[in-house]
């Protein structure tokens, strides 16, 4: 079996935010360097595990996640408790929301912030409306 693999451009969506950097593909697995992981997801690979925003999660899978080819993206996603949807043919993967993050935010009943354009393309954030009561209404054209 040929196990040599070259790095190719791969897109990682962190929620909605895409970053295209190099990754190594082996069969249906995606491996990235610690540097790529940090740029794409803001998670740092450290000796004790993976850290982001002052929180460190231990890597209890060891070399099964931090391999010789790089960090196994699916293994990493599992460790930090986020779903990973992969389109290997198109070289794109999406990291979804973690149950813990959502639980923490919703435990405080905090409305998550977002920024979206209006019809003229002007951006608006939910947080700009602090101090007023809001009905946030989602519509569709049908």
């Amino acid at each position: 079996m040929n196990t040599t693999a070259t790095a190719i451009p791969f897109t990682i969506l962190d929620q909605w935010r895409p970053t295209t950097l190099n990754a190594t593909l082996l069969a249906d697995r995606v491996f990235v360097s610690a540097e790529v992981l940090s740029v794409a997801t803001k998670w740092e690979s450290k000796p004790e595990g993976f850290c982001c925003g002052g929180i460190c999660l231990p890597n209890n899978k060891g070399e099964a996640v931090v391999t010789r080819q790089g960090i196994d993206l699916a293994g990493f996603a599992e460790l930090i408790g986020r779903p990973l949807a992969v389109d290997i043919d198109e070289r794109v993967a999406a990291l979804g929301v973690s149950a813990q993050d959502r639980g923490a935010a919703l435990g405080l009943l905090e409305a998550p912030d977002f920024t979206l354009p209006d019809l003229a393309g002007e951006p608006h954030s939910m947080s700009q409306f602090r101090g007023r009561k809001l009905l946030l209404a989602a519509f569709s054209s049908w």
Binding site: V97, F114, M126, S127, R132, L135
Partner: peptide, 23 residues
């Protein structure tokens, strides 16, 4: 984005948010 963040599964859907940004 809004559907995903606020766990909406249909339209029209409303969420009420107070002055402090709490649901």
């Amino acid at each position: 984005t809004v559907s995903s963040l606020f766990q909406m599964v249909n339209v029209p859907t409303g969420v009420w948010v107070d002055e402090r940004g709490k649901i």
